[in-house]
Every structure is written in structure tokens, then in C-alpha cells.
Amino acid sequence: MGIRFVLLVNKQGQTRLAQYYAEHLTLDERRALEGEIVRKCLARNDQQCSFVEHRNYKIVYRRYASLFFLVGVDNDENELAILEFIHLFVETMDRHFGNVCELDIMFHLEKAHFMLEEMVMNGCIVETSKSNILAPIQLMDKAS
């Protein structure tokens, strides 16, 4: 299956973006899951590896300034590739927003979602070229 969810969380543990793929969690389950994962990941230091096992997921996380990118994957997913994927996502947002920061994502949540939507569908990576990812979004920006 691949990616089960993508989460963006700040240092305080507040969710800034959440996208689940084929995961049917109720609101409470989701909140609990996010809380547990975030607590686990935030407690780790830089020297420790970027992978955490939680319930039946493996969480691959990477920190950019105050933002943590957490991606939940199946157990047989290539963890290193997911790390690369996180970086690609950040670079894509960076290209669009220019020096992307937490506020960009907060105030343009839908844009961040559009980008993610172009990159991942149903938990599978669909596009890895930044210009291909951004083309429809830029087109829409121009039109409006």
C-alpha cells in the first residue's frame, strides 16, 4: 500500500496538515493517534534514526526548523525513500511559496493539500517532478 498518512506538526505538537489514505479513523482515534505519534517523535533527538514503530505503522519523520513532517507507512515500505519523499515535498512547497514556513502552510492549507494531492494518490507516489506537481496550481493561481 505504501503511505498511510502524512502529518505536519509543529514543535508544540499542533497539527498543521493531516492527510489520511484509506484509513478509516474516527475523529477521536485520529486525535489519539496523532497525539501518541507526536509525543513519541518529538521526544527523540537528532542522533537517533528517523524511524519509529508505532502500532502497526512505521513512522518516518524529518524535522525542518520548527515543523515535523511525519509519514506513516506500511511495514514493508522503503523508509529511506520516504525520507526522500518528505524532502521532495518540502522542496516543492519551497519552490511555490519561496522559503516556506509554518505560516505559509497554515494560511494556504488548501494549496499544500493540492500539492500533496498531485504527489500522492491513495498512498502511492504519483509524480516526482516539481514542475509537473506545481503546474496545475500555478495555472489556477493565474486564472484567479
Binding site: H87, I125, T128, K130, S131, N132
Partner: peptide, 14 residues
């Protein structure tokens, strides 16, 4: 467009 650290499209490779 697909280059990551000198490797073309590692995602496709994988």
C-alpha cells in the same frame, strides 16, 4: 527535473 543528489528519479528505481 527528476534529479535527486545526482541520481535520476530514485522513486522510479525503487
Amino acid at each position: 527535473e527528476y534529479d535527486i543528489a545526482g541520481i535520476t528519479d530514485p522513486f522510479l528505481h525503487i
